[in-house]
Amino acid sequence: MAEMIAGPRGPKPRRAFSTPNIVLYGTLIVVAAYYALPLYVMIVTSLKTMPEIRLGNVFSPPVEITFEPWVKAWSSACTGINCDGLSRGFWNSVWILIPSVILSIAISSVNGYALANWKYRGSEFFFAVLMIGAFIPYQVMLYPIVLVLKNIGDFLSIFSLAMGMGKVQVYGTLSGLVIVHTIFGMPILTLLFRNYFSALPEELFKAARVDGAGFWGIFFKIMLPMALPIFVVAMILQVTGIWNDFLFGVIYTKPEIYPMTVQLNNIVNSVQGVKEYNVNMAATLLTGLVPLTIYFISGKLFVRGIAAGAVKG
């Protein structure tokens, strides 16, 4: 006992190969191997030929490496409707992603800024309901949103027809899906921006007010330049979230503009033809590549994004 109390300060120096250390690192390495395994399986399977897959098991490394499955998955795998591969889904996802990310971040950042710096009567109430809304299962709102989108389309058609243009479709088109992504991204993004702007020193805001800057002036000249890191976090969150979406893609788009995840599922779980596991895994890996790249590049920012997302409510 006396030794412990009179002992030196600072962390206790530990021998590298003490028993607790071996157990600790041993466990961590085994668990890490388990977590890494599916990625490994995807990679090796996608590089094997079908005869080789039939001979070995999912974990055996490829004897002769082939990129044929990748080419096929990208350009000629069949979904049951057409056979032009995942490339179609990839570009659909890109076209869904760009407007959805821009619109959702634009709306939510301004909204978060208003909630943080320009509180008005009822603003806290709406914010609270927005946060609660994030927990409502999507299935509860899916069908009425179809009706809302149809109504928006009909409403806009009044003007477009009056101007001699065709009928406007919102449900089943890209624009409808963008609206849906904007709606369901709003709770988390608003929270992210509101918390960030609230944490900025208030003197900054007051000084700008004294100088006569208004709502938009302060936002564009002061808040926006200071909030760049949080914009990056929001982008990471939205790009991975929207890229990984399946549910909204299935419900609110048509087969020609299905996002990549939906097309991937149709390719792999299609019941026609012989199962080509190597092509399936190449397709799976291709779909996972975008979020994985973002994850490995962004590192800490990704963690910050999900941590902010986690404390919502």
């Binding site: 668990v31 399986v41 399936n280 799976t284």
Partner: peptide
């Protein structure tokens, strides 16, 4: 270690489901 434990969270449920469908495949898994 943290990067390895967290990377699956970046993947979609579709990708997750399909990989594990393959790993748990009775004939090859």
């Amino acid at each position: 270690f943290r990067t390895i434990f967290l990377y699956p969270f970046a993947l979609s449920f579709i990708v997750t489901g399909l990989v594990w469908q393959w790993i748990l495949n009775p004939t090859y898994g």
